[in-house]
């Protein structure tokens, strides 16, 4: 706001005018001094020097008013704020930013930690599942399939005894058999053979000839192991049994056995 008009200073009779905010009651007023003057100033419009000067000043006023209203409404309260206030606000914002930054850092660390630990847990779980499958094959709790051989022993005269079958099992194990079942009975670490009338007992379950061994392992190792001179097959043939070995690329060992919790043995590793 500054000077806009200077040199006019006429005697100015009384032209009577100014910015009336709202001339609603004015122009139609009956004969009253104040109202009459107002009406006279408003209508008819006369171009006098006084009118022009006042118009100029009011123009400046309106300009300032509009600018101020505008700047107040469009750019928050900061625009009119004083320097010390601004400095204080800036300080507060800085402090707040710092605190939020710290918090963000902390939360990110926490997140990283949690992600790591969940990754580790997931990895451990996967390894556990894998191990369980491997151990399950050994313990006979899950089915297994893979290349291997089928050994069929026919013993029409019932001369084959349990120790011969046990020998066969031992031979197969020595040759690298990984999963074995005999006539639907899974052979595991604790399997035992016993002689029964007219057959053989495997883990207390009686089976009769023909004995069919399903063996998963490397066929090239398993078959020769059975065929070695003086080995399993020759021994069986001495007892007038016939043994037949068939290689296969896919043997399914699907006889299962319930997992058994040991009563006395405990894991000694923690």
């Amino acid at each position: 706001m500054s000077d806009e008009n200077t040199p006019q200073e006429p005697p100015a009779p009384r032209p009577a005018d100014a910015g009336a905010p709202g001339p609603q009651p004015g122009p139609t007023a009956p004969a009253m001094t104040g109202r009459q003057r107002l009406a006279a100033g408003l209508w008819p419009p006369r171009v006098t020097r006084a009118q022009l000067i006042v118009a100029l000043l009011l123009f400046v006023l309106g300009l300032g008013l509009a600018i101020q209203v505008r700047s107040n409404s469009d750019s928050s309260a900061l625009r009119g704020a004083r320097q010390e206030d601004l400095v204080r606000i800036l300080d507060e914002l800085d402090g707040r930013t710092e605190r939020l930054e710290d918090e963000k850092q902390r939360l990110e660390d926490q997140r990283k930690e949690l992600e790591n630990s969940s990754d580790q847990a997931e990895e451990a779980r996967k390894q556990t599942v894998e191990k369980e499958r491997q151990l399950g094959i050994l313990a006979g709790t899950v089915a297994a399939e893979g290349p291997g051989i089928t050994l069929t022993v026919s013993d029409p005269k019932h001369l084959v005894e349990s120790d011969m079958l046990l020998d066969a099992i031992q031979e197969l194990r020595a040759a690298g058999a990984e999963a074995i079942q005999v006539n639907g009975v899974r052979v595991v670490a604790g399997t035992y053979f016993s002689d029964e009338d007219g057959g053989v007992g495997v883990d207390g379950k009686k089976i009769t000839q023909p004995y069919e061994f399903k063996v998963i392992g490397r066929p090239q190792d398993l078959e020769p192991a059975l065929n070695i001179p003086g080995g399993v097959i020759q021994t069986l043939e001495k007892e007038q049994a016939t043994a037949e070995v068939v290689r296969s690329t896919k043997i399914v060992v699907d006889a299962l056995r319930a997992a058994k919790q040991p009563d006395y043995a405990r894991s000694s590793s923690s």
């Binding site: 005018d17 009336a20 408003l42 006042v54 000043l57 009011l58 300009l63 300032g64 509009a66 600018i67």
Partner: peptide, 21 residues
């Protein structure tokens, strides 16, 4: 009357031109 016009014109100009103070 002209004075009132001056005020109105001032407001309008201030709103439209948006001068930098």
């Amino acid at each position: 009357m002209i004075a009132v016009l001056g005020l109105v014109v001032g407001v309008v100009v201030g709103l439209l031109v948006r001068p930098e103070v």
